[in-house]
Simulated assay, not measured.
Amino acid sequence: MTLSKTLATLTADNGLYRACPGDDWRQGRTLYGGIQAALAVEAVQRAYPDLPPLRSAQIAYVGPSAGEIEITPTLLRAGKSSAFISVGVTAEAGAAAQLLLCFGAARDSAHRYTELPMPKVEAPDAYEPFFQPPVAPVFTQHLDSRRAGGATVVTGAKRPELLLWLRHRDDAAPDGPASLLALGDAPPPAAMTMFTDRAPISTMTWSVDVLADSFDGGAWHLLHVVGDTVADGYSSQTMTMWTADGRPVMAARQTVAIYA
């Protein structure tokens, strides 16, 4: 089931939202974290349709998610230009994820500065696909991918780094933050490029700054993932996403548990 069709399955019941993503959105024994985040944001935007653009998301993946999930958005505070919303996601095994979302309207500013240059790469068609069945997670069947630099997973790389072109394989993927989050969590942890044998990983937290008011759900985007530290069973990594013309749309950090 495509991203747009999966988002369309959300049903509402007195402030509680339910969805049951298919097994094609799984990553091992749990649902892919990006689809959980996308469904949570979609539920929030349905519950509070007059929100300004999403500016940041703090996400904790606290437990496995499988089967039907329930999403409970709670408005914490709404001011003149911003709003904070907490979102709980539960699944068959209990608590699955907790999100804190910040929405904010654009304001006139006397200052403008950006220092997130996109790496120099060729267009996506110049590169080979990155996600290769049957070893790639099941959910990656919904994504088109190209490796534009860095290493690939389980190659004993000295530097944990990935540089990937990615886009949704869904012509109806909606423009907006749900598609951004469903795409932005797709790369494997950069630490996996250092592995010499396959081993489990699990995202624990994901902190996302959204850098643009709009997001083209069907377009190619370049993602750069760098492991800043890999030690003691954990990795802390930096993630950046750009549009094809070099406009930054996401800056993020992620803490990942690694079992290698």
Rank of each mutant, 00 (worst) to 15 (best):
A43Y: 04
V44M: 10
R46Q: 15
A47K: 04
Y48R: 07
D50L: 14
D50Q: 14
L51N: 06
L51D: 04
P52N: 11
R55K: 14
S56Q: 14
S56L: 05
S56N: 10
A57Y: 13
A57C: 14
Y61T: 02
V62P: 03
P64G: 12
G67M: 13
I69N: 00
E70F: 09
T72L: 15
T72K: 15
T72S: 15
L75N: 11
L75M: 15
R77A: 14
R77S: 14
G79Y: 12
S86E: 15
E92A: 09
A93E: 14
Q98L: 12
L99E: 01
L101H: 01
F103N: 00
R107M: 12
D108G: 00
D108P: 02
H111M: 04
H111I: 07
H111F: 11
T114I: 06
T114A: 03
E115Q: 09
V121P: 01
E122L: 06
E122F: 07
A123L: 09
P124H: 01
A126V: 04
A126C: 09
Y127V: 04
E128C: 02
F130R: 08
F130N: 02
F131S: 02
Q132P: 03
P133V: 07
P134D: 07
P134T: 06
V135W: 13
P137S: 00
P137F: 00
F139W: 02
T140W: 01
Q141E: 15
R146F: 11
G149F: 12
G150K: 02
T152D: 15
T152C: 09
T152Y: 10
T152M: 07
V153M: 10
V153K: 00
T155W: 10
K158R: 13
R159T: 14
R159E: 15
L162Y: 03
L162H: 05
L162K: 03
L162I: 06
L163H: 08
L163P: 02
W165E: 01
L166M: 08
